[in-house]
Simulated assay, not measured.
Amino acid sequence: MNYIRTAMLLAAMTALFMGIGFMIGGQSGMMIALAIAAAMNLFSYWNADKMVLRMHHAKEVDERSAPDFYRMVQRLAQNADLPMPKVYIINNPQPNAFATGRNPQNAAVAATTGLLDMLTPEEVAGVMAHELAHVKNHDTLIMTITATIAGAISMLANFAFFFGGNRNNPLGFVGVILMMIVAPMAAMIVQMAISRTREYAADRMGAQICGEPMWLASALAKISGGVARIHNPDAEANPATAHMFIMNPLSGERMDNLFSTHPNTQNRIDELRKLAQSGMGTGGGSSFSQTQAASSGPWGGQPRPSARQPERPKGPWG
C-alpha cells in the first residue's frame, strides 16, 4: 500500500508539472525547464551522499575505531541481504541518524554521538535497521526523483514571471501570479507526503531486519524527546536535508500535518506496536533487558555492550 501511495503521489506531481508547463510555454517551454532541472539534480544524485555527509561533519569509522557499532551495522546488513555500507559517526549531541547513497552498492549510514550515548544497543539496532530499510527500498532514488520534479516546477513558475504564460492560460497574468505561489507549494506538499510515506515503510522493514519492532518504538520515543530539547546547528544551516533523518532534526514537531517531513512520532510507535502484537519479536519491554538471551538481535552470541559505561575508551561502546 505504501508503494501504491508513493506511485500515486509521484504521478500527481508529474501531472502538476505537465499542466503548469503547458499553461506557461507549451511543450517547448516545459521541456527546456525539465532539461535544466534534470541536469541540476543529476549532479546532486551522483554527489548527494558526499555533500550531505560533509554538511554534517560526519567521520567514517571502521571495525577498529568503533568495533561494536560497526559490527552491529554489519550484522544488520547481513540480515537485510545488503552490501556492507560505509559507517559514519557525527559528533552532535542531538540523537538522530540518516542513510544516504544512490543505491545499496554506494550506501552510507550515519548516527550522531547523541544517539549512541542516549539509546541502548538494542534501540540503536532498531534505528540502524530503519536506515538500512531506506537503503533496501531505494528511498534515496525516490526522493531524488521528487526533488527533480519539484525543482522543475519551481523553475517553471519563475519562467512564468518573465514570459507571462501563453494564450492557453485562461486567467492571464493573475493566473501567472497564482501559479508562482501555488505551484511550488503544491510540489513541496507532495514531496513531503512521499517522504512521510517512505518513513512508515522503513519503520516496518526495519522492524523485520532487526526482528524486534519494540526496539525501534522505544528508540523513537527517546529520539523525539532528545530532538525537542537539543538544538542541531548543522541541520538548521542545511534544512533541505531534514527529510533524510529518522526524525525531523529542526524541531520537536508533534503534529502530523501537510508541512511536516515526518509522520507523527506516536503514530509510528503505534504502528510498530501493532507489528509486535501480531507476533513479530518478543513484543515486550523485556527485549531491552540485559537478562534477555544474548542470541537475540544483532549482537549474536557475544555479550552485549552497554551504551552508558562511564569508563569506556574512545569510540562508541569501546
Rank of each mutant, 00 (worst) to 15 (best):
M8D: 08
M8C: 06
T14P: 02
T14A: 15
I20P: 00
F22V: 14
I24Y: 05
G25F: 06
M30P: 05
M31N: 14
A35P: 00
A38I: 14
W46K: 09
N47C: 00
D49Q: 13
R54E: 14
R64V: 11
Q78G: 14
P83L: 06
I90F: 06
Q94T: 04
T100K: 04
G101C: 14
R102L: 11
Q105P: 01
N106T: 04
N106P: 00
A108Q: 01
V109Q: 00
L119D: 01
E122I: 05
A125H: 01
E131G: 08
A133L: 03
D139K: 11
A147V: 01
A150T: 08
G151L: 10
A152G: 15
I153W: 02
P170N: 06
G172D: 01
G175W: 08
L178S: 09
L178R: 10
M179V: 12
I181E: 07
A183S: 14
M188G: 13
S195Y: 03
T197E: 13
R198F: 04
R198A: 03
E199H: 10
E199M: 11
R204M: 10
L220I: 13
L220H: 12
S224C: 04
S224H: 13
H231C: 00
N232E: 01
D234R: 12
D234W: 05
E236S: 13
P239G: 08
H243Q: 09
H243Y: 13
M247I: 04
N248G: 01
E253C: 09
M255F: 08
L258E: 07
L258F: 12
S260T: 07
S260I: 00
N264F: 07
N267R: 10
N267G: 14
R273S: 00
A276V: 09
Q277A: 15
G279N: 10
S289W: 15
A293E: 07
G297W: 03
G297N: 03
W299F: 15
G300T: 05
G300V: 10
G301M: 09
R304I: 01
P305N: 12
P310D: 06
K314L: 14
P316L: 04
